[in-house]
Design a protein around this nucleic acid. Structure first.
Lengths: 233, 233
DNA sequence: CAATTATACTGTATAGAAGACACAATTTTA
DNA sequence: TAAAATTGTGTCTTCTATACAGTATAATTG
C-alpha cells in the first residue's frame, strides 16, 4: 500500500450550530458541558470524525445523537483551523449549521446531552472559537435566507403566514409590513392552503398552510432574491 | 499534557482553485502532474497542512509557492471529506479559491510547478474529486459576484469599462448591454478616472480607470445586489 | 477618403417590484 | 356591548431594471 510521505496527522473534529424557532425568537441548541475540557462552560455540540466515516455522515450523526432528528436542513459552513484554537491538541473543526423544527426533537436525547435551547439574544459566552462560529453561521443564515426560501425549515408542518413572518423578523432582527410580506409570500406559490385554521392563536383566524415541497426544491437551487428589502448588515 | 482519548488522526490537505482572466475568457491555473499519485493527469494545486501552521496560512503558502503572489482574494470554499476521495490514504481536503491578476504572477514559479492557465471552457478532467471542487467554486464565484463587487479582483491595476464588462460576461457566460453596464458601474462610484487611455486597444482608446479601494471595502462587506439581471443558474 | 469598428455618453419608454397605507372581517377580552 | 387584537385583501405611488435609440469620437483598413 502506498502512503504519503511525512505529512502530519491532525485531529479532525466537527461542530454543529443548531438553529430553532419557538414562534417568537431564534434559538440555539447549546450544551452545558459536564465533561472535560472546559467542564461547566457552554459549547456547541461536536465530535470527532471517524476514520471510516464520510464527513457529511459525521455531521448527520452528531445532529442525530443530540436531537433524534434526521433529514434536516444541514449545510457545511466553514472549517476553523487556527493552530491554538483547541488548547488540548491540534484540532481543526469542520463546522456545520442546521435548521431544526423545534417541535419534532427528541427531548430525552437533548436532556441526556445536557443541552438547552437558548435565545440567540441571550447567548452565553462559548468555549474556544465557538463564538466566532455562531457569528458566522448567523451571517450565512441571513445570506441564504435572502436568496433562498429556507425560512420554512424552521417551521412546523402547518403554519400561518404571520408565524412565518416572525421567523424572518427573527433572522434579520427587524420588523416587516404584514401586508407586503403576505403578498410576497403568496406570490411565490410556495404555500398550500390546508383549509384548517390555527386554533392556538388568540383570534383563531389564521389560515394554516403547508409547504409546497416541489416548488420549494426549485427555490432551493434557483437563485431568487427573496427579501431585497432586508439588509444583511 | 492532556490528550483526547481514541479519536483517529486523519490527513488534512488543502486544494486551491485559482481563477484568472486574460481579457477574453475566465481561466484556471491547473497542474500537469509529474509526480505520484496520478502522474500525467491534471489536478488543482494542493498540499498538506503542517502541524504548526494555521489553516489560512497554509492556503496562502500554497498560493504563494505556485504564483509568487500574496494578498490576493482568497476565500475558503468548503471541505471535502468522503472516505474514498483520495485512494492513497484517508485525507480530507479544505478547498480555497483565489482570484488572481494574471499579469502579476511569477512565471518561473508557475513553470517550476508545471502549471498552466487553461480556459474554463476547455477544462480537462481532473483527478479525485477536483472536478466537483471546481464546479462548486464557480457556483460560489457567481454568488459572490452577484452580491459583491469582486469582479475587480481579476483586473489589472488600470482597466477600461469594456474590459470589466468582459469579466462579468465570462463569469456568468452571458452577454450584457454595454450602455446599461457602463451606467451601473459608474453609478457605484467604484471607479476613478486615471486620465490615461488604453494604448493597447485596436480602435478608439478607452478611458483607463483604477479601483476606488476605499469604496470597494464597503462593497465587500455590505450586501449589494450587484447584478440582479444575471441569473446564477 | 470612405467604411468599419470600438468606445463614451445621453436619453427614453415600459414593466414590474417595493413599499406605504386603508379597510373589512372575525374572535377574544373587558 | 364596546374595545382590542389579529388576520386577510386591495390600492396607489415611487423607483429600478431592462430594452432599445441616437450622437459623437477615435483609430484602423482598404
Amino acid at each position: 500500500m502506498i502512503h504519503y510521505t511525512h505529512p502530519s496527522r491532525i485531529l479532525v473534529a466537527l461542530d454543529c450550530i443548531i438553529f430553532g424557532f419557538d414562534g417568537e425568537e431564534l434559538k440555539l441548541l447549546l450544551i452545558k458541558r459536564n465533561f472535560d475540557p472546559e467542564s461547566g462552560k457552554w459549547s456547541l455540540m461536536g465530535g470527532f470524525l471517524n476514520e471510516y466515516e464520510d464527513l457529511e455522515a459525521a455531521a448527520q450523526r452528531i445532529l442525530y445523537d443530540l436531537t433524534g432528528l434526521r433529514n434536516n436542513y444541514l449545510e457545511q459552513l466553514q472549517t476553523f483551523g487556527a493552530v491554538k484554537r483547541d488548547p488540548v491538541e491540534r484540532t481543526i473543526s469542520v463546522v456545520y449549521y442546521a435548521l431544526v423544527n423545534i417541535q419534532q426533537q427528541d427531548i430525552n436525547a437533548i436532556k441526556a446531552h445536557n443541552a438547552y435551547w437558548i435565545n440567540l439574544s441571550e447567548k452565553p459566552d462559548l468555549i474556544f472559537d465557538h463564538n466566532a462560529m455562531v457569528d458566522q453561521a448567523l451571517r450565512q443564515l441571513r445570506y441564504k435566507a435572502a436568496l433562498h426560501a429556507i425560512g420554512f425549515e424552521l417551521m412546523p408542518d402547518k403554519f400561518t403566514i404571520p408565524q412565518l413572518q416572525k421567523v424572518y423578523e427573527a433572522i434579520y432582527n427587524t420588523q416587516l409590513d404584514r401586508r407586503n410580506f403576505s403578498r410576497k409570500i403568496i406570490s411565490t406559490e410556495l404555500l398550500i392552503d390546508t383549509g384548517d385554521k390555527d386554533t392556538n392563536s388568540v383570534t383563531k383566524k389564521g389560515k394554516l398552510y403547508r409547504l409546497n415541497t416541489e416548488k420549494y426544491q426549485q427555490y432551493l437551487t434557483d437563485y431568487v432574491s427573496f427579501f431585497p428589502e432586508l439588509t444583511l448588515s
